[in-house]
Write a protein that binds this DNA or RNA. Structure first.
Lengths: 135, 135
DNA sequence: GCAATATCAGGCAAAATGTCTTAGCTTCTC
DNA sequence: GAGAAGCTAAGACATTTTGCCTGATATTGC
């Protein structure tokens, strides 16, 4: 049978990371960063990667300039969300809650982390009070 | 270049799920459940899958009986942990905390979920008080 | 006009993965 | 004890992903 395509490959991710860090960029710029001193072939590699990322709607290509410019259409948080959702679907019947409790239980939070988390939740609780939309 | 192997394939996962639900099992049993009425070929498929799972140390094979018996060496929680760690490594510099806050922020917890989470944290806090091992 | 630089199109090899065939044992049954 | 049935081991295979590269063609800049 077929290979299950990966959400975002590690190599693709390295491109996204760059776009996140440096904003919109040209192929050349990305190539220079990713494969410093890389020649024509590396350039083409990055080009192909971007082409595929564009297909997957993860990157937008701006064709106006003489050299195309690329920018990420997804940010880190969103990608994290996608990944977590995948895990939840495959292992928790789609619910994210088990992931949450897993992290809280397993993670050995430091005192500070626990405090932060706690205040985050309290914050949410007061938000909720202001706009009670019980979901 | 090469393909990055997936931690656990969806098909492999379906086998693990069965082993989790039904405990140790033979190839035949698993085949019957996974591909009801599947013939020799499906049997061989499951066989190969198990062989690979054994290689990956995710399943233990008991060769004593006339038909080998298989049992999972990893449970659901552990697999969740692996997956989360992978996400953290690739997207959060290895720290799981961002995942935690992402979930709390994004998740639109229901009232009840929030309450549960809160008490879970409080529970941890009292545990901590009993054995203060500040990490 | 020429050289540099871009894009486009397509090929390629290595590896993953699910599937299947076959051969050779062991075990059960009559 | 012979034949059938079930089991394991070994390996072939097709399909697909994925990172990488080449060559042709178009565009830009001077």
């Amino acid at each position: 049978m077929a290979r299950t395509p990966q959400d975002v490959t590690e190599t693709e991710l390295s491109i996204l990371q760059l776009l996140w860090d440096e904003g919109a960029a040209t192929i050349r710029h990305l190539t220079e960063r990713l494969y410093p001193g890389g020649g024509t072939s590396k350039y083409a590699t990055v080009q192909k990667l971007l082409e595929r990322l564009e297909e997957e709607q993860l990157v937008r290509r701006d064709r106006s300039g003489s050299a195309h410019t690329f920018q990420a259409l997804i940010n880190r948080e969103e990608l994290i969300g996608r990944r977590l959702r995948t895990v939840a679907e495959q292992l928790c019947g789609g619910s994210l809650t088990p992931l949450l409790t897993h992290l809280v239980r397993t993670r050995k939070l430091s005192d500070q982390e626990r405090r932060e988390l706690r205040s985050l939740i309290e914050e949410l609780e007061s938000d909720k009070r202001k706009s009670p939309r019980s979901n």
